[in-house]
């Protein structure tokens, strides 16, 4: 599919198509939605089956569930402080959903739903609404002091306030662009080098020997992509915690 007509077609992997036949196409149920459901199901299964044993000495699945729980728990409490406990379920859900989305996308024939800015921006918008509502609920009108630091000369207000507002509004944008751009870049690179293998492989007698080079690059890239998948989920979760810290403490 990639090398059809001897061209590099790196972007068709992000195209949406409906699944489940006529039912799916009538409600617009795409493979992206299917993978989201799969990710949610896998996370639920990991936590439920992992913790069903409740062993003192955890098995493989239980230790995976426990370590992911503790990882996010430490992250949220380390960033937000003790008030962060009540935001833990939110950040944990977000982290696991993004992580499973990134990792599922690396499997052959799978679709990466985090490679669509509509998805990542929706997640970031939820975070943005949450931090704004939390800050307004905890601090009331004092929240608006966030846009004008104390001690700044008052004649600078017409410059500082719009700049701070734009900076505040850019949070969900940078959060979503970072995740989406990382996933797209990684998958485009994988596809480009995979196409090189096919194109160089058909180069006659020396083809298979030259094609080994992009194959080696692709093997390294897959390993790198596993790292990026985890790192981007981590960055998403920690930035959410940092924003929550700002919302709880104002600065």
């Amino acid at each position: 599919m990639a090398a059809e007509g001897k061209t590099i077609d790196a972007l068709s992997q992000f195209e949406l198509a409906t699944v489940l036949g006529p039912i799916g196409s009538s409600v617009g149920f795409s493979q992206s939605n299917a993978h989201m459901l799969l990710a949610a199901g896998l996370i639920t299964a990991l936590i439920m089956f992992g913790m069903s044993a409740r062993a003192v000495v955890p098995g493989r699945l239980q230790s995976l569930a426990e370590s992911s729980y503790e990882f996010v728990h430490d992250l949220v409490l380390g960033q937000v402080g003790d008030e962060g406990k009540r935001f833990f379920p939110f950040v944990f859900t977000l982290f696991m959903f993004v992580l499973f989305g990134n990792l599922l996308g690396l499997l052959p024939y799978a679709f990466t739903f985090t490679s669509h800015i509509a998805v990542t921006f929706a997640l970031a918008a939820v975070v943005f609404v949450l931090i704004t509502v939390v800050a307004l609920m905890l601090h009331g009108r004092k929240f608006f002091g966030y846009f004008f630091p104390e001690g700044a000369p008052i004649w600078l207000a017409p410059i500082i306030i719009p700049v701070e507002i734009v900076s505040y509004l850019s949070r969900p944008v940078s959060l979503s662009i970072r995740l989406f751009a990382n996933m797209v870049a990684g998958h485009v690179m994988l596809k480009v080098f995979a196409t090189f293998i096919v194109l160089l492989g058909g180069l006659g007698a020396i083809g298979p020997f030259v094609a080994v080079l992009p194959l080696g690059v692709n093997i390294a890239l897959v390993g790198f992509e596993v790292l990026v998948a985890f790192l981007q989920a981590y960055v998403f979760a920690i930035l959410t915690s940092i924003y929550l810290h700002d919302a709880v403490h104002l600065h």
């Binding site: 734009v166 900076s167 509004l169 850019s170 944008v173 940078s174 662009i177």
Partner: peptide
Amino acid sequence: RAGVEVVSALVV
């Protein structure tokens, strides 16, 4: 990361 920050602020 710095590039993303600049671009997103400009976009907004």
